[in-house]
């Protein structure tokens, strides 16, 4: 129980004041954010701050059920980082390298969604070039197809890649934006799903 308490402390004392006051994230389409789980929150990925920012703009009561899917190779390195990432942030480790089947790699993500959690998922798989959307991997299609009843919330982030880009350790304040796009559902067509998702992650709506 007390890691959850630490998570609240971490968000209330550090993440929210830093991201919402010092940096300043302006959310557009806030009314389209999920009010309850299960939900798959999908965003473009440029910074370690992305997952924290997405968790911070959701209502605080959803925090215990909000879980970012994150690279097992990176976040499970070292005892303390692993403990902090797993217990306090509540990440779902995903083995991004190794080429195993989706069902195996994304098993824990699927279980979390079935349990009603809100999962933060970056379909690019990695942070990539600053402020540019990379090629989406097929994991998101597999998730959407496997769990068609789970609503998908696409959110386009801008600016966090300037605040804390890949390889940097010193965050520098810039105003950031988060556009919450129209909710997506799986309708049976891979191509149409991907096009709709890419549109929502690149164009402001």
């Amino acid at each position: 129980m007390w890691p959850i308490f630490l998570r609240f402390l971490f968000f209330l004392l550090l993440v929210k004041p830093f991201l919402l006051l010092a940096v300043g994230i302006s959310v557009r389409g806030r009314q389209r954010l999920p009010h309850q789980g299960p939900a798959l929150i999908v965003a473009n990925h440029n910074s370690h701050l992305d997952a924290l920012a997405l968790a911070a703009i959701l209502p605080l009561r959803l925090l215990p059920h909000t879980r970012p899917a994150a690279s097992a190779e990176y976040f499970l390195q070292g005892r303390w980082r692993s403990w902090f990432a797993r217990k306090v942030i509540g990440i779902i480790p995903v083995a991004t390298k190794g080429g195993a089947a989706h069902a195996e790699v994304l098993h824990e993500v699927k279980e979390a969604l079935l349990a009603g959690d809100l999962v933060i998922f970056f379909p690019e798989g990695t942070r990539g070039e600053p402020e540019a959307l990379g090629q989406l991997k097929s994991g998101i299609v597999w998730l959407a197809e496997t769990l068609p009843e789970v609503p998908i919330y696409p959110i386009r982030l801008r600016g966090l890649g300037k605040v804390l880009p890949k390889g940097a350790w010193l965050p520098v304040p810039f105003f950031c934006d988060a556009w919450v796009g129209e909710r997506l559902r799986w309708e049976g067509d891979r191509q149409r799903f991907m096009t709709a998702l890419v549109t929502r992650l690149t164009e402001p709506t």
Binding site: G24, P130, G159, P165, P173, F174, F175
Partner: peptide, 12 residues
């Protein structure tokens, strides 16, 4: 200053 630096192009 933050708004200004957000608007103008800056180098990484």
């Amino acid at each position: 200053l933050k708004e200004y630096l957000t608007l103008v192009p800056t180098r990484q």
